[in-house]
Design a protein around this nucleic acid. Sequence first.
DNA 1: TATTGTTATACTCTATAACTATA
DNA 2: TATAGTTATAGAGTATAACAATA
Lengths: 153, 153
Amino acid sequence: MAVPAEHPADAPVSDAALRALVGYNMKRAMGVIQADLARTLDPFGLRMLTFSALSLIVENPGLRPSRLAAALSVERANVVVYVDQLEQAGWVSRAPSTRDRRAHALQATLAGRRVYARARAAVADHDRRMMNGLRAEQVAALRTALQRIEGAG
Amino acid sequence: MAVPAEHPADAPVSDAALRALVGYNMKRAMGVIQADLARTLDPFGLRMLTFSALSLIVENPGLRPSRLAAALSVERANVVVYVDQLEQAGWVSRAPSTRDRRAHALQATLAGRRVYARARAAVADHDRRMMNGLRAEQVAALRTALQRIEGAG
DNA sequence: TATTGTTATACTCTATAACTATA
DNA sequence: TATAGTTATAGAGTATAACAATA
């Protein structure tokens, strides 16, 4: 009966099999991006999803929660929580829809548009920072690849 | 006092500001990949993280949990749970280390190596499927970009 | 003192089921 | 009947704090 092998403490851990998968590399790159984005948004009291929701509400005044959910690819039930948080911060209001009494018309407040403008600039800086080691053509190629992958889903 | 605007129900929701961010496109592509990967691994009783952990244990026999955590970029505390699950499935064993009595030497069992071999083939198919709309140079460019982004973190 | 594995805990993201009021 | 917003709940991923055993 052989003694079980022990991985040497000084040898690097081989992750060659995982690195062969594009998805694994994307998950790791995404981890770096998400960590930096969370740091970027924290001073504004926003998280990735509340920032995204605020962006869509600012750009589409009167948007309904159900359409916001579809645009974010999340369930309606979760959007309720994000809008709750944005409303409690005073950045978004829920007005009754005049066309469908079941629905709401989401509006960004003046404070909401202001925090969004500042956060958006910070996030744009963050995104440029993440692309720093890449040439313009590489960023363009990355964009194309990501959109094609998403579209194939 | 103006009546609040209401986004027309038939108009598309504009996400132009978010689409300008590479990170947003990556998050959405990652969502598509993760959903397909979860479906791929489900029949094997594996999830993304247990599959990744199993892969590293198979390829690095005798690996310590603390090094596994570092390789996966997760906390030691979480690795405990993944190894628990792999151990309960009979795919991984925790042997005492002969060199450091605090540590464990993780080993894949025969059943673990077998399920890994089958899951790995299915995951490789999944990864190719995700890259289906891309030419080989585009995949190579994507790989390069992702690794550079991760390295900059 | 520092590190290893561990437990407990908490927060975020995501999904499903079920309710209500409208359509 | 179907849909919009909502509530409650649960699973998965991730992080921190604290502990016992060992270095």
